[in-house]
């Protein structure tokens, strides 16, 4: 079991009081499985993904990632987990603007001190980024930037890969390409993948689909 949610609750405070976002979420995800998380805007998809990525903490309930229970970890424990077992791909602003594409791709694996250069090269080739390595992110198109983000995620050999609308900013053709490559690479590494998306098209490509409505899985 790479990811397991058990009765997870989360609410936010705003000017009108406490707004419940997740109201008892339980599910799990095995290695090699892909999962689509769908739902309307504000249904709590991103919050769920952030909790799975150890970026935010749940108010109640328990979450396991790669066998570790997140509530048992302190800040640096969660940081270490993010570094080694989780990889994140956001809709945008994934990259460090002042580093080259090459440095960005190997950055996460370099953080944990385990750069596998052959693996990195395979990923770069697979994503068609070989010619872009020396460029800075600002010189790339949106599709290329997302490929770099995916390359970085795969290069880190995570057990769990989390993607939040990874193709949300891309035109349809590019989105299709990027998604295709991501799924292929994830399949090769055997990681579990959870994708937050509002696209039924993308959801259809995943092994499993969960839908969030009013903070509950339906």
């Amino acid at each position: 079991m790479v990811l397991k949610f058990e009765a997870v609750h989360k609410s936010f405070r705003d000017s009108e009081g406490t707004v419940p976002v997740l109201r008892g979420i339980s599910f799990d995800l095995e290695a090699g499985q892909t999962l689509a998380l769908t739902g309307e805007s504000g249904s709590g998809k991103s919050t769920l993904l952030h909790i799975a990525g150890a970026l935010e903490a749940a108010d109640a309930g328990r979450v396991w990632v790669a066998g570790q229970e997140l509530t048992q970890l302190n800040d640096s424990g969660r940081a270490a987990l993010r570094r080694t077992d989780i990889a994140l791909v956001f809709q945008q602003f994934n990259l460090i603007p002042s580093l080259t594409v090459a440095a960005n791709i190997s950055f996460q694996s370099a953080l944990s001190g385990q750069v596998d250069q052959t693996h990195v090269e395979q990923v770069v080739d697979a994503l068609g980024l070989s010619d872009q390595m020396k460029k800075y992110p600002e010189a790339l198109s949106g599709g290329q930037q997302q490929r770099v983000a995916i390359a970085r995620a795969i290069a880190a050999k995570p057990k769990l890969m989390l993607a939040d609308e990874p193709t949300g900013n891309l035109d349809e053709g590019t989105a299709e390409d990027v998604l295709e490559q991501m799924l292929k690479l994830v399949a090769q590494t055997g990681a579990a993948l959870m994708v937050v998306t509002h696209s039924t098209n993308i959801a259809a490509r995943m092994d499993r689909r969960l839908q969030l409505r009013s903070g509950l899985l339906v």
Binding site: D75, L81, R83, L88, F93, I96, Q108, L111, S112
Partner: peptide, 15 residues
């Protein structure tokens, strides 16, 4: 700010 967010989400401890 962006770089700091990225670094943290990639697992660099705050301290």
């Amino acid at each position: 700010r962006g770089m700091i967010r990225t670094l943290r989400s990639l697992g660099v401890p705050l301290r």
